[in-house]
Computed example of a mutant assay.
Amino acid sequence: MTEQAAPYMSHPRILVHAVMPGKPGSPPFRIVEIDGQVVGEAKAVTDVLEAAAAYGITIHDLDDPDQVRWVGGDKFTWATH
């Protein structure tokens, strides 16, 4: 048998959590973690890229699960349902 029993699970340096509702009058946001540490809030995909750059991480593909893990949506999900 050539298949593995467990699926491959990547461990990217950047984790973007699900969308959180902002305070009244504020836009929703997503919490960003880098290397297991919360580094801030992102209100748009550019905020994720800026946070990564501040930590010396260059992201070439936002859809690559080895670079970024998106929880509760993808790079286009920035509103609560």
Rank of each mutant, 00 (worst) to 15 (best):
I31A: 09
V38M: 12
A18D: 14
H81V: 10
D66W: 03
V48S: 02
G56K: 04
V71E: 13
A54Y: 02
V38S: 12
A6D: 08
R30A: 01
D63V: 02
V45T: 08
V48M: 00
Y55E: 15
V19G: 06
G72V: 04
K75I: 03
V39T: 11
T46E: 14
R69N: 07
G22D: 11
T46W: 02
I31H: 03
M9S: 12
P12G: 08
Q37L: 10
K43G: 08
G72D: 10
E41C: 11
E41S: 12
T58N: 06
D64P: 06
E3P: 02
G73M: 04
D47H: 14
E33G: 08
V19T: 15
V19F: 07
I34G: 06
D63M: 08
Q37R: 14
Q4W: 10
P21M: 14
G22R: 09
L62D: 01
E3D: 13
G22P: 07
Y55D: 14
T2E: 07
D63N: 14
Q67W: 04
G36V: 03
Q4T: 13
V39D: 08
P65V: 10
T2F: 09
H60F: 08
E41Y: 11
I59H: 01
D66F: 05
T77R: 13
Q37I: 08
S10H: 15
R13H: 09
S26V: 05
